[in-house]
Design a protein around this nucleic acid. Structure first.
Lengths: 209, 209
DNA sequence: AAGCAGTTTAAACAAGCGTTTTAAATAACG
DNA sequence: CGTTATTTAAAACGCTTGTTTAAACTGCTT
C-alpha cells in the first residue's frame, strides 16, 4: 500500500472518530506508520488532506447517487420514502469500497458541518452541487406542493438529522445494545432514520401566518 | 460586572460561535478584558468553565421546561405539536435572561454534542435527567403506540435535527435573507422546525421486519 | 495602622500543534 | 553503471495551547 493511501486511511478513521480539529497530523502519521513530513509532502497541508479524504468518498458516491435519484424521478409517482430510500444502496456500497466506509463517510460529513466553521460545507456544495440538485428535483416530484422556501428548511433539517445521527451513530448503537439488547449496524440506523425524515419533509404545509 | 460573569459572557459567545475546542482561553479573557489566569482562578480549568456556561442556562431553563411539559401532560389529548410547542416559551425566555440567550444556548447544545467527544452529553444527561424524563412522558401521552425503542431513536433524531439546525442557524438565517428576502430570527427557526420534528416523531410505526 | 483573605497581574512553564528544513535512502531511467 | 528524481527520515522551527507560579494590589476587619 502506498504511503499516500496509508495516510488517507488513517486520517479518515481518526477524523471520523475525533473530528478534524481534534486529530493531529502526528496521530495520523503514527497510526499510518509513515513519517510526519509525508503528509505535507503528499498533500501540502492538513486542509488539503481533509479535502482529499472527502473527495475520495464523494467521487465514489456522487455518480451512484445521481443515478439512483434520476431513476426515482423517472418512476410514476415516487413517495418521499422512495426518494430517501434511494440513498440506501449508494451509501451502503461504500462498505464494499472500504471497511466501515458508510459509517466513516457519514460521520465525516457530520464533522465537516460543525468543525472548521463550514469550510467543508462550502467545499461540498461548490464541488458537488449536482447531488443536491438531483435530490431537490426528486423531492419536488414527490411533493409538488412544497414551496421552495419550505423545501429549503426541510432539506436542511433533514441534513441535520442524518448528519447528527451518523456522527453519533457509534454511541447510538451501543445504547441500543445495552438498553434493548439489539445488535445493530450502520445500515440499520440508516433504515431507521428514513421514515422519520420522510415524515418530516412530508409534513403538511403550515398555514400562512 | 464581576470578573466571573465577564468571563462567562465572553466564553458563552465565543463557544457558541467557534465551538469549545475552537476557542482559546486567551480569546475569552481578552474579549472579557480580564487576565488570562482569572479563568483558572475562578473556574479551575477550561472544562469546568464549559460546565459553568452550560449550567447557567440549564438552571434557568430546566424548571420552566419541566413546568411546561407537565402542563401539556395534564391536558386531555395533547398532540405532538403541543408537546414540541411547549418548548417555545421556555426557550425564548432565555432571551430575557440574556441577549441572544436562546440562540447561544441552542448553539452551545449543538457544540456540546459534537465537540469534546460527548462529555457534555454525559454532563447534561446525568445532571439534568428530569428534562428528558418529562419530555418522554409527554410524547408517550400523545403517541402511546410508540414503542420504547422507536421512541429512543426518534427522540435522538429530533435532538439531532434541533441541535444541528441551531448550531448553524446563523448561516440559515443569512440564506433565508439572500434567497427568499426574509428577515428571520431564531424564534422563526424554532417555529419552523416544530412541524418537521412533530411529523418525524409521529411517523407511523414501521412494519415488523 | 497592621494584617489578612480575596483578587488581579505579568511572566513563565511544559506540551502539543502544523510546517519546514536538512540529509539520507530509494527508485527510475538513459 | 551513474545520474537524476522521488521518497523517507529525523530534527528543529515558530507558534499556540492550558496551566501554574509568585508577586502585587484591593478592600475589609481588628
Amino acid at each position: 500500500m502506498s504511503t499516500k493511501n496509508k495516510i488517507l486511511d488513517a486520517a479518515e478513521n481518526l477524523f471520523a472518530d475525533k473530528g478534524f480539529n481534534g486529530t493531529s497530523l502526528r496521530e495520523i502519521t503514527s497510526q499510518a506508520e509513515v513519517n510526519l513530513a509525508a503528509v505535507n509532502y503528499h498533500f501540502g497541508s492538513k486542509k488539503e488532506l481533509i479535502k482529499a479524504v472527502m473527495s475520495r468518498y464523494m467521487n465514489e458516491l456522487s455518480p451512484r447517487l445521481e443515478l439512483a435519484l434520476t431513476q426515482v424521478c423517472e418512476t410514476n409517482s415516487p413517495s418521499l420514502i422512495d426518494v430517501f430510500s434511494a440513498f440506501i444502496d449508494p451509501l451502503l456500497s461504500l462498505n464494499e469500497f472500504k471497511d466501515n466506509g458508510t459509517s466513516n463517510f457519514l460521520q465525516l460529513l457530520g464533522r465537516g458541518y460543525t468543525d472548521s466553521q463550514g469550510f467543508l460545507r462550502w467545499f461540498l456544495t461548490t464541488q458537488y452541487p449536482e447531488v443536491i440538485d438531483n435530490f431537490v428535483l426528486a423531492v419536488q416530484k414527490s411533493y409538488p406542493e412544497l414551496t421552495a422556501e419550505e423545501m429549503f428548511w426541510r432539506l436542511h433539517f433533514t441534513m441535520g438529522t442524518v448528519v447528527f445521527t451518523m456522527s453519533s451513530s457509534d454511541a447510538l448503537i451501543d445504547i441500543a445494545k445495552s438498553d434493548f439488547d439489539r445488535d445493530l449496524q450502520i445500515s440499520d440506523v440508516i433504515r431507521n432514520v428514513i421514515p422519520y425524515v420522510a415524515a418530516g419533509v412530508g409534513a403538511p404545509m403550515p398555514k400562512l401566518g
